[in-house]
Every structure is written in structure tokens, then in C-alpha cells.
Design a protein around this nucleic acid. Structure first.
Lengths: 168, 168
DNA sequence: TCCGGCGATGTAATAAGATAACGCCATGAC
DNA sequence: GTCATGGCGTTATCTTATTACATCGCCGGA
């Protein structure tokens, strides 16, 4: 374990917003969504979801694993976390950022969307976008190729506004 | 090592085209590009490039490693392959498919493009596209967010025409 | 020619990410 | 109560990627 270049946010780091509210909100929506679907948001899964929402930075499975182990006070197996993440991803509560092998809370669970992200290489924050133009453009070109889309992935690496200002 | 669901193509598998020509062409362009830039396309790097071009399916680093070891008649270290891949990616001769942890030859080395792919989940083939609409849409939304793009990644998973026909 | 430097490669060890195989236990339907 | 199902624990293992350090070979300048 080496030093994390993008330390996890505390309770209020992203633009100084009330992140505790983010978390609470995400958990509430997850509860509602799972209840509606008859999916079981168990204590473990809820815990993992909360840990994913700990910041707006994508987090690796093993980072979450460490957090979980610490909270539980005992070592947890990787599989435990992966299974919970699998459930959360399946139900659209969490997205996987392919280019980082990491996971991030979904900003709009329940809504139809395709998972598009602006990932800042400096601070590590990832903002979920869902631009209809991108979606449309992908749909169009796929159609032109006779390609049937199942899962579009858009991950734009770059520098966010804040980080541009800090290093001009 | 388990059975590969997407076995590597022989000399003529993708739409029955002359794949040997694909390879030869790719190597020629690589030679030209590197010469032009003063980059050293060493025997090893050229070999790895050739192995990447062995098919139109993204290939994992360790798959390439195996091929290389076999060709050389002696075990090769992972690092050897990773270093060669790094060089090839840097010079735009090869793209990395993030969602597969795999590598594929670039269809248009030298040209400005952003790396967009249609990846078939059935046959494993990946087609590189470079749709200006997608590029434009990403540029627009990034600008709206004040986000400075360094590396856009678009990987569309789905089913290609051929595979749709085979399993209707 | 010899030397120095630098980029490329070799070797070994290990980190990081993910899954397979097996079994127990809690929950809920009947 | 019984049974089926799904969730979770345990262990082992696999795949992917990197760190650290040594060596080689080419090329330019003295």
C-alpha cells in the first residue's frame, strides 16, 4: 500500500458541499429502489455502498476492502467486497470506472443512463454526466455499423475546472 | 490458462479478408512513422506489434507474452511485453482497451483520433471508429463543465452484425 | 580508439485486481 | 417443520501490472 495521490474526502470536500447529505441521500435512494424491486440491500451491501460514496473519487475494490475490514474490526475477504459491488453495479447503484479499475456511486440510480464520466487526473474526482448528444452519437454510429449496443462506456480523462485554476 | 472464448484469428478470418496484408501494412506504417519521428522500432517492439496485429481481437499482455515466448523459444518476462506495449501505445501504434485490459492495433496510426471502439461480446472483435459527432459531443460537454480533455475513452460493448446473424 | 552516457533489455520479486470451489447459515415459502 | 434459495465466509488461485536493480549495446565526443 503506497500513498494515495487522491486522498479520500472527509465529510465536506467536494466544492465544500455537504457530503454527509450526499451519502445519506444515496443510501435513501438505494433503500427505496431496492424495496421497489424486491432486491435485498443487506447490511453488508449497504455498508459497501456507503464506503463507495465516501467521496466523489472512484475507489478500488481493495481500498473499500480495507475500510470495511477496519470498520468491522476484522479482516474481510476480497470476495465479500466484490460480491457486494457486483450487486450494486447490477442494480445501477454503483458504476465501475473501467480505466481505473475502480467504483463510484451512481448519481442517478433508477434513471436510464449510460454511464459517462469526466475523470480528473489531478484530484481524482469523477463527475457523472449523461449527455444525450453523446448517447445519440453512439447510437447513430452503432446503427451505421449494424452494431447492437449493450453497454456503452465513456470515460473522459482530463483536468477539472478546480485543478486548472490551481495549476495555471 | 483456460480455453479462450475468442480464439485468435489465423491468416484470414475476419470477414475472410487478407489478414496477412493487414499485418504487413501495419508494420510498414509503423516503420515509416517511427523513422519519421526518430523513434526506435526495435526488433522486439516490432515483434510485439506484429503479435498484437495477429487478429482484430484485443489481446491481453500475457497472451502476447506467451506468443512471444513461443516464438523466441524461451520464457520472456512480463515486463518485456509491457515495456514494448508502452512504447507502442505512446506512439499511437496500439490502443489499450480499458474495459478488457487488452491491446489492439491502431487502425490509423499517425492520424489524430480519440480511440473509439465497438467491441463485440460474442466474437471478441473490436472495430476502431472515429466518429466526429462523438468527438464533438464530448468536446462540447467537457467545455460546458470547464473540463480540459486529455484522453477520451469510448468503448461500446455489444454484438456485431455477424454475430447477430448467427444467433437470431 | 577509448570512454561516457543513455536508452533498451534481462532478471527477480511482488503488488494489485479478480475469481473459483466449497460449504454453512439465515430467511422465507409451503 | 422442512426445504429451497440466496447471502456470506474461507481458502486458494489466477490474471494483470509494477518496482527495483543489473546488464548490454549503440552512439557521440574527447
Amino acid at each position: 500500500m503506497t500513498a494515495d495521490p487522491h486522498p479520500t474526502a472527509g465529510s465536506a470536500s467536494h466544492h465544500g458541499h455537504d457530503h454527509a447529505h450526499c451519502i445519506a441521500d444515496a443510501l435513501m435512494r438505494a433503500d427505496a429502489l431496492c424495496a421497489e424491486r424486491g432486491a435485498r440491500l443487506t447490511a453488508l451491501r449497504r455498508q459497501v455502498l456507503e464506503l463507495v460514496w465516501n467521496s466523489h473519487k472512484p475507489r478500488g475494490a481493495y481500498a473499500i476492502l480495507e475500510d470495511l475490514s477496519q470498520r468491522e474490526g476484522k479482516a474481510t475477504a476480497p470476495l465479500t467486497v466484490y460480491r457486494a459491488l457486483e450487486f450494486l453495479v447490477e442494480h445501477g447503484l454503483v458504476h465501475r470506472i473501467e480505466s481505473l479499475n475502480a467504483y463510484i456511486g451512481c448519481a442517478a440510480p433508477g434513471a436510464v443512463h449510460s454511464g459517462q464520466f469526466l475523470v480528473c487526473e489531478t484530484c481524482g474526482n469523477a463527475v457523472e454526466i449523461d449527455d444525450p448528444r453523446i448517447r445519440a452519437a453512439i447510437g447513430t454510429i452503432a446503427a451505421e455499423h449494424g452494431f447492437q449496443v449493450s453497454r456503452p462506456t465513456v470515460e473522459v480523462r482530463g483536468t477539472c475546472t478546480d485543478c486548472q485554476e490551481k495549476t495555471p
